[in-house]
C-alpha cells in the first residue's frame, strides 16, 4: 500500500516535470490536480516536478536542443501548474530562498532575455523580484535595500543602456556590500563585466542559475 503511494507520487511528479518539458497545459493542470488530490506537499510538487522539468528545458536550451518558443511554452505550463499549487504551499521559515532583484537597465525595453533568466532562477529555487524593463539606478538600489536581496542582476541588450551597470554595481555595493552583482545581455562580455566590477556574468539564461548559485555559496 505504502509502495503504491510512493509510486503514485513519483508518477505525479514525473508527470508534472514532463508537462513542463513538453509545454503541455492540459497535462500541467491534470498532474497539479492529482498532486493536490493525493496530498503531495505543494513545495515538493513545484520543486521536484515543475522545477525539475524546467531545469531539463534549461539544459536543452543550453545545448541547442530547444529554442525560446519551446521555452516559453514550458514557462506557460509551469505557471499553470504553479498557480494551482501555490495556494497549498505551507509557510516554511526554515527554508528561506535567496532573493534576486532583476531588471533591464535604464533606456532598454527588451525583456525576453531577462524574463528567461527570471524563469530559470525561479525554477532553480530563487525568489525573484522582477523590476521589469527600463529600470533606473536608484530603483535597483532602493529595491535591493528594501528586499534585503542577495543578488542584483542586470540585463541589457543595448550599448546605450549597459553603461549604467557600473553605477548600479557601485551604488548597490555601497548600500549593501554583501550583495552579489550579476550582469548579462547581448553586448556584454566577461571582460566588460569585469571592467564594470560585476561579481558574475552569465552569457544566457541557462547558465545564470549556475552562476547565481556559485556566487551566493561562495559568499556564504
Amino acid at each position: 500500500m505504502i509502495r503504491g503511494k510512493v509510486a503514485m507520487k513519483e508518477e505525479i511528479l514525473k508527470g508534472l516535470a514532463q508537462a513542463v518539458i513538453d509545454g503541455d497545459l492540459d497535462k500541467a493542470q491534470h498532474f497539479s490536480k492529482e498532486a493536490i488530490a493525493n496530498k503531495i506537499d505543494a513545495y515538493e510538487a513545484i520543486m521536484e516536478g515543475c522545477a525539475k522539468g524546467m531545469n531539463i528545458v534549461s539544459q536543452k536550451y543550453e545545448t541547442g536542443e530547444c529554442f525560446v518558443p519551446e521555452v516559453l511554452c514550458s514557462a506557460e505550463a509551469m505557471t499553470t501548474a504553479m498557480d494551482m499549487l501555490k495556494p497549498y504551499l505551507k509557510a516554511d521559515t526554515t527554508n528561506v530562498p535567496k532573493k534576486v532583484v532583476i531588471g533591464t537597465t535604464q533606456g532598454d525595453v527588451h525583456e525576453i532575455g531577462k524574463n528567461l533568466v527570471t524563469l530559470m532562477l525561479e525554477a532553480g529555487g530563487f525568489k525573484v523580484i522582477d523590476l521589469g524593463p527600463d529600470v533606473s539606478v536608484e530603483k535597483f538600489v532602493e529595491t535591493v535595500k528594501k528586499e534585503n536581496a542577495d543578488i542584483c542582476a542586470m540585463s541589457s541588450l543595448m550599448t546605450t543602456s549597459m553603461i549604467f551597470m557600473p553605477d548600479i554595481i557601485k551604488a548597490v555595493k555601497a548600500a549593501k556590500p554583501d550583495t552579489v552583482t550579476m550582469v548579462g545581455g547581448g553586448p556584454l562580455s566577461p571582460s566588460t563585466a569585469e571592467t564594470y566590477g560585476a561579481d558574475g556574468y552569465a552569457k544566457d539564461a541557462s547558465v545564470a542559475v549556475k552562476v547565481a548559485k556559485e556566487l551566493t555559496s561562495k559568499r556564504d
Binding site: 537597465t105 535604464q106 533606456g107 543595448m158 550599448t159 546605450t160 543602456s161
Partner: peptide, 12 residues
C-alpha cells in the same frame, strides 16, 4: 523616438 536616458533607437 529615443529621447530618453539610455535610449539608442526607436522602440515600440
Amino acid at each position: 523616438f529615443p529621447y530618453g536616458v539610455g535610449h539608442g533607437a526607436p522602440y515600440v
